[in-house]
Every structure is written in structure tokens, then in C-alpha cells.
């Protein structure tokens, strides 16, 4: 009891310390904090009514984001098939799957926007760095999912087909693939949804897509136009979500 009381005191002290440290060392002037409310209200006021004349830019930007998500996902699938096999406990030895899994965890740990910034630096502005960034970032998760799909395949039906005289190709086709396919389809659709959502903001760092217009309009104080693009992004996210729910119902 005593040590537990001491423990919770230490946690409390640590949290209070962290809050005090943040409050005292961030130079927030009280006057600015007090006037922030009206300023935010004023800012939001300048966003209405949203400017509908930017429909063209919205369509162009959305189409580019969609293309980045599709091609980036395709790249992630391309890398995830071999890496998924190499990260599988049942297909390769621990000497191989452990480092591959660590590599995938490291890739997952880097946020997409950071990968995108690095790629913009490497290959220049436009959708190409966005596509590469999505492909790399998504592989960290998708290859892990594929490895889990491979490892979840039950061995007994494979032995049963072997006993019936099915060759290796027939066993892959009729015992292994039917067990993996629904999992692979579900995980790939899930990752595509994430890719589409996350690539909406890639334009902010110059990696193509609709985010570019938000950044441009905010920087040039055209808040009504920025509002239209933001509304379009919200509409897209809701649409993606609805389509994904429908797809999941179809595959589940």
C-alpha cells in the first residue's frame, strides 16, 4: 500500500511538473490569449460565405489526390507482397522475419507528412513525391497485415488436399488462397481508405493534391476560397467512409 501511494504521488508530481513546465516556458502573453477568442471568430467570419468559384480547383485537386492514393496504394501492394512473405513467421526463419518486422515498424513510426517532405526534397514538387511517400508509408502497415494473413492460414486443409493428391499449385489455389483472400481484400481496402484520407493534406508540403489549394488560399488571405476547399475535403472524407462501410459489408 505504502509503495503504491508513493508511486501515485510520483506520477502526480510528474504530470504537474510537465504542465507547469509547458505553461511557464511557452511564451504565451496573457493579452494575446484573451483576445484569441474574438480573433478566431473574426477569422471564421471571413470564411463565410465560402467562395463557390473555386469548383474547378477543387475538382482538379481532388482528382490528383485520388490519383496519388490509387498509385501510392498500388506501390504499397507491390512492396507488401514480398515484404509480407519475408515478415511471415510461418514462411521464413526468425533470423529473417525479425529484422524485416523491425524495419516495417520503423517505417510505420514515420508520419506520412514527414516522408512526403523528405521525398519533395529528393524528387521535387508535384504528385510524384506524394505517390512515393504514400507507397513507402503504407507498406509499413500493409506488409505487416499481409504477414498476419499468411500466418493465420490453417495448415490442416493443406494436408487434406495433399492427401487427396493435389499438387503444390492446386494446394496454393484451393487451400491457402481461399483462406487468405478475404483478409487480404479487407486489409487492402482499409489501407486504401487511410491512404486517401492522409493524402488530402500532402499538398501542404508540396507533394500534390487538394491540400495545395488550402495552403495557397490561406497564405494569400483568401479565406472564403479556403473554406470551400475545406468543405470539399470534409465531404470527401465522409464519402470515403460511406463507400468503405458498404465495401466492408460486401466482403465480410
Amino acid at each position: 500500500m505504502r509503495s503504491r501511494g508513493l508511486g501515485s504521488f510520483a506520477v502526480g508530481a510528474f504530470i504537474s511538473g510537465a504542465i507547469l513546465w509547458s505553461l511557464l516556458t511557452t511564451e504565451v502573453e496573457l493579452s494575446r490569449l484573451l483576445s484569441a477568442g474574438p480573433r478566431i471568430a473574426d477569422f471564421l467570419g471571413r470564411m463565410v460565405p465560402p467562395d463557390p468559384t473555386v469548383m474547378n480547383e477543387i475538382m482538379k485537386g481532388s482528382a490528383e489526390t485520388l490519383r496519388i492514393a490509387i498509385l501510392g496504394s498500388l506501390g504499397a501492394i507491390f512492396f507488401s507482397v514480398p515484404l509480407g512473405m519475408l515478415a511471415s513467421e510461418t514462411m521464413v526463419s526468425p533470423a529473417l522475419f525479425r529484422p524485416v518486422r523491425t524495419l516495417l515498424a520503423l517505417i510505420r513510426a514515420v508520419p506520412l507528412i514527414l516522408v512526403a517532405m523528405l521525398m519533395v526534397g529528393a524528387v521535387g514538387l508535384g504528385p510524384l513525391p506524394g505517390i512515393i511517400a504514400v507507397a513507402i508509408h503504407a507498406t509499413g502497415m500493409l506488409a505487416k497485415f499481409y504477414a498476419e494473413a499468411i500466418d493465420s492460414v490453417s495448415r490442416a486443409p493443406i494436408a487434406a488436399l495433399e492427401s487427396a493428391g493435389a499438387g503444390p499449385l492446386a494446394r496454393l489455389r484451393h487451400a491457402i488462397w481461399p483462406q487468405m483472400a478475404p483478409v487480404i481484400a479487407r486489409d487492402t481496402i482499409f489501407r486504401f481508405e487511410l491512404n486517401l484520407r492522409e493524402s488530402l493534406i500532402l499538398g501542404i508540403v508540396g507533394a500534390g493534391g487538394i491540400g495545395f489549394y488550402i495552403q495557397t488560399y490561406v497564405r494569400s488571405f483568401q479565406y472564403d476560397k479556403a473554406a470551400s476547399v475545406t468543405l470539399a475535403v470534409i465531404a470527401m472524407v465522409i464519402t470515403i467512409e460511406a463507400i468503405n462501410v458498404a465495401l466492408r459489408r460486401r466482403f465480410a
Binding site: 486443409p157 487434406a160 487451400a175 481461399p178
Partner: peptide, 8 residues
């Protein structure tokens, strides 16, 4: 344990 392909 039957050894059937469950999703088929």
C-alpha cells in the same frame, strides 16, 4: 478436426 477450407 475436419481440415476443411473454412471460407469456401
Amino acid at each position: 478436426e475436419f481440415a476443411l477450407v473454412e471460407p469456401s
